[in-house]
């Protein structure tokens, strides 16, 4: 199974708050892949929005993603696009 990793910075001025986390979880649900997200030191899988929120990813945080599954490439491209937005999805 293909494993893809990628890292990017959070551009939303409010950080990854509810709306962004919700969209993130939705994106992942729409693809055939499982995604791990790593903040400063914690690592969670992206199915729990509370887990994502509790990583406390504020504006400028460096985030690493690790995806495996058929859509691994596609899902990370979408995730990266989401995190590089400066406005709410």
């Amino acid at each position: 199974m293909k494993v893809v990793t990628r890292q990017c910075r959070v551009r939303n001025p409010k950080g990854i708050h509810c709306r962004v986390a919700t969209r993130l979880a939705e994106i992942i649900a729409d693809h055939e892949a499982t995604v791990q997200i790593t903040g400063d030191d914690d690592s969670v899988d992206c199915t729990s929005i509370l887990d994502i929120l509790s990583l406390a990813l504020i504006h400028g945080s460096l985030v690493r993603f690790r995806a495996h599954g058929r859509d691994a490439d596609k899902v990370l491209a979408a995730v990266e696009a989401l995190l590089s937005r400066t406005n709410d999805p």
């Binding site: 409010k14 950080g15 990854i16 708050h17 929120l53 509790s54 406390a56 990813l57 504020i58």
Partner: peptide, 8 residues
Amino acid sequence: RIADGYIR
């Protein structure tokens, strides 16, 4: 434990 007020 979250430092950022908005997310907290």
